[in-house]
């Protein structure tokens, strides 16, 4: 039914989504938006896993990888947002250009 659907389409979509994640990581100064950008980049990677599972390598490995990648991404989001809250508590700011170096 989806003969016209191709691997290339999914891969291009995930490359563009990864690019949008990079925009947030490089261009925004709010730590929360940087984390959202990282989530987009992880999502792009999972889209790649699913696309290759669907079109090129239909064993269960791609699915297992995607599940574990999502689990790790969820843990990362939890720790990252907790860091943002800790940062806010200490500095009253969530802007990454106001974070002092770790050695201080």
């Amino acid at each position: 039914m989806n003969d016209a659907l191709t691997l290339n389409g999914c891969l291009i979509l995930s490359a563009l989504l990864f690019g949008i994640g990079l925009v947030a990581v490089f261009g925004r100064r709010s730590a929360i938006l940087v984390l959202i950008g990282i989530e987009f980049m992880l999502n792009a990677a999972v889209i790649n896993f699913v696309a290759f599972w669907r079109f090129a390598h239909p064993s269960s490995d791609g699915m297992m990888f995607s599940i574990f990648a999502i689990a790790v991404a969820a843990a990362e989001a939890g720790v990252g947002l907790a860091l943002v809250i800790a940062l806010y508590r200490h500095r009253r700011s969530v802007r990454i250009d106001e974070i002092p170096p770790a050695s201080e």
Partner: peptide, 25 residues
């Protein structure tokens, strides 16, 4: 500036993929 870097990266990857002959489903 960030958007320029990201669009360059994403566009480069996407344009390589656009000409890549993927295996048919």
């Amino acid at each position: 500036k960030g958007a320029l870097i990201a669009i360059t990266v994403g566009g480069a990857v996407a344009s390589c993929l656009a000409v890549y002959a993927a295996p048919k489903a």
